[in-house]
Design a protein around this nucleic acid. Structure first.
Lengths: 228, 228
DNA sequence: AAGGGTATTATGTGCAGACATAATAACACA
DNA sequence: TGTGTTATTATGTCTGCACATAATACCCTT
């Protein structure tokens, strides 16, 4: 019995993989497929919509639906809290606030946050631990102008979790890169200077203003993995 | 006028961000929301379903819909062909096949591909160029047992593009990490040994068998970026 | 009081029909 | 021949209804 939208999605995917519908091919329209599968057009629509979302199909009104020529692989990554990530490994999470001060940020930081030169920000350095071993070295710029007052003791609650609980849902962007460990990172993480570190950088915004820019330097061996 | 499912999604998201519906809160059921917004329940369902997919809501039958307590950030990355990536920067893409041979892979490679020890694979080393400058150093293991014959001249067409055109749609996983440049990578990319390189590793499968394992070492400065 | 079966309830999905929208194809006119 | 308008068409979405499914709440029995 082929009638649920998941069955239809599977069948369409099968035909694409089996090259019955090769890349670039125009596939039958929704009405015809609905007729063939003996279901409503809405059901076919649901199935094709999901496949288009996954990058397998390309759809345009009037033009029809065709098999994607160059299926852009879309990788979806979960970005959990560091605490969740550590605990998911069965380790215990802890952290140390190494440094906190209020200062004028360097120009690249101010510009990435879209702030006027001279605005003062809070700067934090935190070391996250997994079973007591250095796990992530976090450097964070916070914009106090858009934070609810009073600020907590960041030695007691990690900035990330406090923000989650006290600042409205936000948007932002994430970037990954690789960098050599600088002296400060090497010391904090307990590794040699120059080791390759996996770096995650996140910028977070409310509707209008930048909230925080955080840079996570993961200790060597860290991997981010996805199932496609 | 609030009636399209996108309007409803936006309004629900607004209420969550404005903390009218705080994290952990149980929100009204679909029927009530449909009544409030003056639309059909299916429309509300579509909006809430999308938000649940994005990790903002958690839904369970009978239990209802609640605002996610710890919204796991989901980052979606596009993984284009290297050629597309280079050309998107306005540079010209080229590549050199540095090495091709058939050999028994090291044990970690064989096990990651789920192959019996002793199976022979094709090993390729390719250097991708952007405007003539080293861009990515690619090492690839190919499983000839599941490839259509005859194999092409990989000096003429890049393995990735040939696979796309000749092997059925596949699944796989992707991992990112940071590693120090080894002697081979340093020479190929023209950088000092020990420099931090951004590494992408992909394993690709057909329905049953492993097709290829590829490791891309990106030259220093490479970033992967996402909008959330 | 404990346990198990049943009713209730919220979401998940399906269907048939309708209109909206975008994009192409066809046509008419200068 | 070129151009602007109109018709056609496939997808996008909404409605109202129905039944399926999962999970909780309740009640009855022992």
């Amino acid at each position: 019995m082929i009638n649920s939208w998941e069955d239809i999605r599977a069948e369409v995917l099968r035909r694409i993989r089996a090259r019955e519908w090769p890349p670039g091919d125009l596939i039958p329209n929704e009405e015809d497929l609905a007729l063939e599968f003996g279901c409503a057009r809405a059901t076919v629509n649901r199935a094709l919509r999901e496949l288009a979302l996954a990058g397998v199909l390309e759809r345009r009104r009037k033009a029809g639906t065709r098999v994607a020529m160059l299926p852009v692989r879309k990788a979806t990554l979960d970005i959990p809290l560091i605490r969740q990530e550590v605990e998911a490994r069965g380790q215990s999470h802890g952290f140390q606030l190494l440094l906190q001060r209020e200062t004028v940020p360097p120009v690249p930081v101010a510009s990435r946050l879209g702030l006027a030169a001279g605005a003062r920000l809070i700067y934090l350095e935190t070391l996250h631990l997994a079973d007591g071993q250095p796990f992530v070295f976090e450097t964070r710029w916070l914009n106090p102008a858009v934070l609810p007052q009073p600020l907590p003791d960041f030695g007691q609650i990690s900035a990330n979790e406090w923000l989650l609980a006290h600042v409205s849902y936000t948007t932002g962007d994430i970037a990954f890169s690789a960098e050599e460990a600088g002296p400060r990172e090497a010391e904090a993480l307990g590794v040699a200077e120059g080791r390759a570190l996996f770096i995650t950088e996140r910028t977070t915004w409310t509707a209008e203003a930048a909230i925080t820019l955080v840079r996570l330097a993961h200790s060597p061996g860290y991997r981010v993995q996805t199932m496609v």
